[in-house]
Amino acid sequence: MTVHFIGAGPGAADLLTLRAVHLIQRSPVCLYPGTYLDPDILTHSAPNAELIDTQHLNLDQIIAHCRRAHAEGKDVARLCSGDPSTYSAVTEQARRLDAHAIPWDVTPGVPAYAAAAAVLGAELTVPELAQSVVLTRAQARSTAMPESEALAGFARTRATLVLHLAITRVAELADELAEHYGTDCPAAVVYRASQPEQLVLRGTLATIADRVREAGLRQAAVILVGRALEPSVHCVQSHLYDPGRSRSGGE
Score class of each variant (00 low, 15 high):
residue 14 D to C: 10
residue 14 D to V: 10
residue 17 T to Q: 09
residue 22 H to S: 14
residue 25 Q to C: 05
residue 26 R to E: 14
residue 26 R to K: 15
residue 27 S to F: 03
residue 33 P to H: 05
residue 33 P to D: 12
residue 35 T to Y: 05
residue 45 S to E: 03
residue 53 D to K: 01
residue 57 L to D: 08
residue 57 L to G: 06
residue 64 A to I: 04
residue 66 C to K: 01
residue 67 R to S: 10
residue 72 E to L: 14
residue 75 D to V: 02
residue 82 G to H: 00
residue 87 Y to K: 02
residue 88 S to N: 07
residue 92 E to N: 09
residue 96 R to Y: 02
residue 98 D to A: 14
residue 100 H to L: 12
residue 100 H to W: 14
residue 100 H to Q: 13
residue 106 V to N: 01
residue 108 P to I: 04
residue 114 A to L: 07
residue 120 L to H: 04
residue 125 T to R: 02
residue 126 V to E: 03
residue 130 A to P: 00
residue 131 Q to R: 13
residue 135 L to Y: 04
residue 139 Q to W: 07
residue 140 A to E: 13
residue 141 R to D: 12
residue 142 S to N: 14
residue 144 A to H: 11
residue 147 E to S: 13
residue 148 S to L: 11
residue 159 A to Q: 02
residue 159 A to D: 02
residue 162 V to M: 04
residue 163 L to A: 07
residue 165 L to M: 15
residue 167 I to E: 06
residue 167 I to S: 05
residue 168 T to L: 04
residue 170 V to A: 05
residue 170 V to F: 06
residue 171 A to Q: 13
residue 172 E to C: 06
residue 176 E to K: 13
residue 180 H to A: 12
residue 183 T to L: 03
residue 185 C to G: 02
residue 194 S to I: 00
residue 196 P to T: 05
residue 198 Q to P: 05
residue 200 V to R: 15
residue 204 T to M: 09
residue 205 L to S: 05
residue 209 A to L: 08
residue 214 E to T: 15
residue 214 E to R: 14
residue 217 L to G: 06
residue 217 L to E: 05
residue 217 L to P: 08
residue 225 V to P: 10
residue 227 R to E: 12
residue 228 A to V: 03
residue 235 C to I: 11
residue 237 Q to C: 09
residue 241 Y to P: 00
residue 246 S to P: 04
residue 246 S to C: 10
residue 250 G to P: 00
residue 250 G to T: 05
